[in-house]
Computed example of a mutant assay.
Amino acid sequence: MKNQRRVFLKGLATASLATALPWTKCAAKEKDASPAMVPAVIGSGKMKLSFRPYELQLEHTFTVAGNSRDTTPVVLVEIQYEGHTGYGEASMPPYLGESQESVIRFLRKVKLDQFKDPFLLDDILAYVDSLDEGNRAAKACVDIALHDLIGKLVDKPLHKLWGINPANTPMTSFTIGIDTPEMVKKKTAEAARFKVLKVKLGGGNDREMIQSVRSVTDVPIYVDVNQGWSDKHQALDMVHWLAEQGTEFVEQPLPKTAVADLTWLTANSPLPIIADEAFQRLGDIAAFQGVYSGINIKLMKSTGLREAQKMITVARALDMKVMIGCMTETSCAVSAAAQLSPLVDWADLDGNLLITNDLYEGVEVIEGKLTLNDLPGIGIRKRDV
């Protein structure tokens, strides 16, 4: 059946897609680029992998429990095959433990030219995963680019290939980082077009943060503590208060290592408790049943779309809630994740909206709702910059 499906999909392939912009045309000036971080092309066969570092500039300083930043390093990827180009991206916020250097070292090991058929995703991605432990964002950028390439080869967006109804996309939250009351009010006012906000807590000013948001808007709130609380009893008191403030769930309230405390909190909480930092890959899910109410899937943790799809299936089978989120990313990775968004309970896909130098355009937010387009693959095109 798989072989028949591949033959069918290949039969739909068209050579009529517009030629992608040259890879060098959108190159932005990089700061202190080392010799190991210049654009590179790997492979002499049919599939050719190229990559380069890029630095995302945030519109506002982004503060969560534990750190602040004004930029996020990413690596942008292209896979070329028979006149088509698939785009991918690896984003490396501090807690992932990856860097542009580590991603590029990993990508230099990837030899896609040994595979003659990009539709052999199981084989290709199993090979990529076997190259080294960890490196989840590096693996994700290859996965995303391959999925984009396949969609372009058959001239269909991924959501159509997967039989997903684009009308069922959820609202996406917009993130308000930890800040002063004045800045929180300003950010909240700027986010007026969003129907739900995600508020970062855990910085010691939690009630002030929520009260500042509530002074501007009454839209529903998602709360993300980023492991910023330490006492389970104080956490439960805070969750009860948050429930009264129109909060829908609380994400990673306690350290990921505090499994017994998290199990107790989930059992007693009036709100769903969602795993984020504790949750990385498919094999983690079963152990979280009863510890958390649900999981937050991010492509940079799951190694990409292939495993993310499986995560949704397993979580549903275990009667767990599902959220799909993102790091600070361009529209490339965000649009890829958005292809799966109709299958989840909640979405936090705003990473591209927090930056000022997005190289792509893709999924849109219209009246707060994620809106997929009919572009093939992950649904993006390069901006003409």
Rank of each mutant, 00 (worst) to 15 (best):
S269P: 08
W264G: 06
G304V: 08
I285N: 01
K298M: 11
V250A: 03
T247Q: 05
V322R: 02
Q280D: 08
A315Y: 00
Q280P: 03
D284W: 04
K301G: 03
G294V: 06
I285F: 04
M320K: 01
V291A: 11
I297W: 10
C326K: 03
G325W: 01
K321Q: 14
V314C: 06
I324W: 00
K256S: 14
L282D: 07
R316F: 04
I295K: 02
D284Y: 08
I295V: 15
S302C: 15
A286Y: 12
T263S: 13
A286C: 05
F279V: 01
K321V: 00
Q280M: 11
K321N: 13
T303H: 12
V314R: 14
M323F: 07
D319C: 08
Q252K: 05
E248Y: 06
S302Q: 14
Q289R: 14
L282T: 10
G283Y: 08
A317M: 12
F249V: 06
T257I: 05
G294Q: 13
L265R: 11
L299F: 12
K321R: 14
R306S: 14
K298S: 12
F279S: 01
E307W: 05
Q289G: 03
Q280L: 12
E251D: 07
S293G: 14
I285G: 00
V314L: 15
I297T: 13
G290H: 11
L271W: 09
A275V: 08
R281S: 10
M311V: 11
D319R: 11
P255Y: 00
L299T: 10
G290M: 09
M323S: 05
L271H: 10
L282F: 14
L271S: 10
G304K: 07
E277F: 04
G325M: 09
F279A: 00
V314S: 05
E307N: 12
K310Q: 15
R316M: 03
P255V: 00
R306I: 04
Q289K: 15
L282N: 07
E248M: 09
D284H: 14
E277S: 05
Y292V: 13
I312G: 13
G304N: 10
S269T: 07
P253S: 00
G290R: 10
I312Y: 10
Y292T: 06
G283C: 06
S293Y: 05
I324Q: 01
L305F: 12
G283A: 11
E277D: 14
D261I: 05
L262P: 13
